[in-house]
Structure formats: structure tokens, C-alpha cells
Computed example of a mutant assay.
Amino acid sequence: MDKFYKIVILLIVSLNASCQMKNKYEWDSYTCQPRLSVKGNENVYCVEFVRGDIITLEGIPATLPFGGSSGRWGDSGKSWTSQHGTPIGADVIYYAGYEDKFYHLKTDFPVEEMKKAVDTTYQYYDDNHEKFSGLIFGFAPQGMVVVWKEYGVIRIELGRYQAEVITDDKELEKKLFRDWSMNREEVKARDFMPNASCAQWDMYRKRYTFRVVMQNENPNLRLFQYCFTNYNGEQDIIFMPPLPATSYDNRALPQILEMDWETSGRERFRGNIFLNEKVIFEKFKNFKAEDKQEFEVKISKDNKKLELFLNNQPVEVDSVRIYKGSVMYKGSY
């Protein structure tokens, strides 16, 4: 074969392999932080990035979004250009105005876990499947950084990491503030919080062993799913057509518990229970991580009342909402 054609074929094979890998391992990067409004700053915990590199196994460049973090804990609310490859670490420099500090996060992710993560697909109801779709970086006070793996609507914590304070930061200050309308002293005057602490977000990460059981007065009730939105930023869906109870799992405490059920072909519902942070953490504070606890959800026969119990004791919640459901399942009436 002519040498020129051999080179062309090799280039085509290489390009095809690169395209296949990019298509297979395509995901988004996101950043977030706790949501808090202070002295006119509606997002005081927002951090600003000087560098935001994500390290990939294949050596493909990947980055965090430009600018600052957004959204709320565990949820950015902003999209960004798709990234490619298997993410195995991060090299990030950022500025936390509320502490007036520059931080450097240089960390590795567990390689085997990330190789498995990009090849994992979740089925969360009927025939809906979600592949690995993103990494979310959350920035809390005192250099605390939490990273979550995203699979569509499912979020799973990868780990908690510690960024280190950069003491010699004058060049970083020049680089970051050269195009700002405020200088460093003005940002500090507006945002500085001398007692900022990561304790609250570390508390959110505590895990307990519990299950959820549904008790109902209507023999026609069919339960289709539980959706957990947890205080630690994780979100999980348990699809369970005939079963009234989940298995005992070690997980963070739920902030919102959502469920879908039917009692006839014309009676389809979605219910949301919004838990009270102070109440639920007080109830769990003396429980050991391995001790088994049980949440009970009780639905009235007319589908108008939804109550939450913990180990047979009623739990005060912030609110309960019941909507007419619209999702059809394979097991629907």
C-alpha cells in the first residue's frame, strides 16, 4: 500500500478513536456554593476562580466554568461547555471574598472509581436511563470542597476535599481584580465574615442507616417511586413498583422526600414533604451511623393528607404538598 494512503488511514483511525472516546465520555462541569444573602450581596458565599483545571486520565484538557460559582449547595443552576475524558483530579485556585483568602485545591480522585463512574448507567424509572453527565464542585467556608457525580437527576457525592490557603497572593490579587469594578478592600468591606465556618456543611454529610415505609388506608394505592433530595447535596431516586418499603441504606438525611403514587386510573399523585432542618438533625443527633431507623409516610384514603413519622413518632416538617400527578408508569392503572 502506498505510504501516503497508510498515513491517511492511520489518521482516520486515530480521529475516529478520539471522536468515539469523546462521545462516550462527554459530561459537564458545574460549580456551586451555599446560598446566603448578606448586606446587599445576594450570593455572599460565591467564590471566584483564577484557575479551574480538571485533570483527566486521557490527558484531555477540562475546566470548571469561567467566572464565579453559582446556585445553591449541590446544584449550580448553570450549564457550561461539555468536557471530555475520565476526570481523575482537580487543580483549582479561587478567591473567597467573605474570608478575603485565596485557596488552592490540588487533589486526586480515586482512579478506579472514576473509570467505573464514566461507564455506569442508572435506570431510575421504567426505561429511562442516565449515564454519567457531570461533576459538580461545591465550595464551602474554610477551604471545604465537596464534589458530586451527576447522572441526570441523580447526584452522588464523590468526596470531601480540603483546599489550602495561599499566603503569598499579591500576584493572584492583581490578576483577579484587574478587570473588576471593585477592589479587594471594597469586597472585603462588603462581604467579610470573620466567623465563617464549614461546620454546617460537614454536619450535612453525616450518614445514618434508615429506610422509608409507606402506610396507607387505600388498598388500591400503587407506589412508584421515592425521590430523596438530601441536605448533603445528593439526590437519589428509588423506583419500586410493588414495594411499600425501601431497603435499609446508609445515607445523608433527606431535605425533601418526594413520591409518586396512584389509587385509580384517574387518581394520580405526587407528594412532597419538606423537612425542618433543626427538627430532623436534633432527632438524629444521638443515633449511631449503624443503628437502623425507620421513616413512615402515611397517606390518607382520600389522598388529601400526608404525614411523616420517625420510629412511630410524628415528625414536625416545614410543609407538605400534594399535586395531581402526570407521569405514567408501566404499572399504572
Rank of each mutant, 00 (worst) to 15 (best):
E130Y: 05
E130L: 02
D100S: 14
Y124L: 07
F109Y: 13
F102Q: 01
W148S: 09
T107S: 10
G97R: 06
E113P: 07
Q83N: 10
A90Q: 04
A117R: 01
R72V: 13
V145H: 02
D168G: 10
G89V: 04
N128Y: 07
L135M: 13
D108N: 12
V147K: 00
D100K: 03
T86Q: 12
R155A: 08
K106T: 09
Y124A: 08
S76N: 12
S133L: 11
Q142E: 15
D91T: 09
K149W: 00
N128E: 14
S82P: 01
S79F: 05
F109W: 04
G134W: 02
L105D: 01
I88K: 02
H104D: 05
D108A: 08
K149D: 00
D100Q: 11
I136Q: 01
M144Y: 05
F102W: 01
Q123L: 08
G97M: 03
Y151F: 11
F132G: 06
P87T: 14
D168R: 13
K116L: 06
Y94A: 08
F137C: 04
E164N: 11
E113D: 13
K78V: 13
D127M: 10
V165A: 09
E164G: 01
K116R: 14
V92D: 01
G152V: 05
A163P: 00
V147C: 12
T120R: 15
S133I: 05
D168F: 08
N128F: 11
L135E: 00
V165M: 03
I93K: 10
D127I: 04
R160D: 10
P87L: 11
G159Q: 04
T167D: 11
Q162L: 11
E130K: 04
M114A: 11
T86Y: 11
Q142G: 10
P110G: 06
D108P: 02
E150D: 08
R160A: 09
D108G: 06
G97W: 01
I88C: 09
A140M: 13
Y122A: 03
V118A: 13
K78I: 09
K78R: 13
A117D: 06
K115T: 10
P110E: 05
